[in-house]
Design a binder for these strands. Sequence first.
DNA 1: GAACCGCCTAGAGCCACAAATATGC
DNA 2: AGGCATATTTGTGGCTCTAGGCGGT
Length: 412
Amino acid sequence: MGYICDFCGDQRSMVYCRSDAACLCLSCDRNVHSANALSRRHSRTLLCERCNSQPALVRCSEERVSLCQNCDWMGHGNSTSASSHKRQTINCYSGCPSAAELSSIWSFVLDFPSVGESACEQEMGMMSITENSTENAWDSSENASGSARVNDVPSMDNKPSLWACSSSVPEHNSAAQVLDQPVGSASVTLPKLCCPGTKGPGLCEDDDLYEDFNMDEMDLNLENYEELFGMALNNSEELLENGGIDSLFGTKDMSGADSNCQGAVAAEGSSVGLVNAMQPACSNAASADSVMSTKTEPILCFNTKQAHSNLSFSGLTGESSAGDYQDCGASSMLLMGEPPWCPPPCQENLQSASRSDAVMRYKEKKKTRKFEKRVRYASRKARADVRKRVKGRFVKAGDAYDYDPLNQTRSC
DNA sequence: GAACCGCCTAGAGCCACAAATATGC
DNA sequence: AGGCATATTTGTGGCTCTAGGCGGT
């Protein structure tokens, strides 16, 4: 079981960073990803406890293990008994989340102390919990936390109570509780913490699969980063002794998390709400630069407030520079075939029709969407924009050039 | 079904240099 | 501890090249 931190080679790895393709312990995760703004955007999630090499997408509450997609399929896809296991999606996060925020993302994470101000916060004054970390519709009935059930298939007779993006839930999401945001900025902050599928209330009006949303101005303040990871590190052995990572996965009351999905469901699809695939959230959004192509794949979500669940797609878009966005695997999972929790056959026709329609529209929009690169230094861009080139390469001032952005002329 | 070919796409790398950052005094 | 000078690193856009995917033969 060689699941040792790729960085320090000492501690047990608990977190998987897709951007770095590395398995890290919490301490190294903190160290590595607080290094700079780019690394802070890396989307991380828990490590699969079975293969210890892939990011976990779901947690089986029966077996109390976090599983990657493959292990989940292998463990639950074939066995009829195992396939009935209730599984919850596991969220990704980015930035330097506080204890409370990590607890929000992963309810199973211990109750970290919350005092003081993290170094990361002090340095950055910003961080981001991946908006799709709350992509899941929270289980309001259980105040389920950072996870959402994935195999509780809603039925016609049974309104989905899980996944629910219930708008009856109080207007504060877990992350919002932690963040010290001016009132005026709350609306700006919400989308970041809202299910991508959810977008913000206003963002759900468009019937497009999803709309771009701007995360740039969301500077979130976090607390207790030091305490969180310091404690995690100090207690790592204890955790192992007490059941290892499993001990982290106990249920925790995360009331308020539901609100992450408020307004999340667009009137997309409009079928009988049979789509049951709820994708875990994984994007990293604050910087909005982590949307990779797979990340923009459809994400489905339910709204319990709807008489019939609406199908909605969501994703992150916007001024993302594709570079940083790493696929969390969640979205793509949807495209890899029907998940174990797919709807009953009798509903497939209606569902597939609306779904294919929605997917078609989504793809259309995706084609037209621009993933603009985010420019960090406008002054440098301004210089680059006027710099003369030879075959695209910058040339020394005064040298012959074949392209002048200003004059579109050639000197040779 | 395997092998080969052409076409297409995505991504990496290159370039100069001002700005940003780090280091030393 | 703060200020200054110097050194090092970063980031910027257009073009080219290459690897890989895909479809056809």
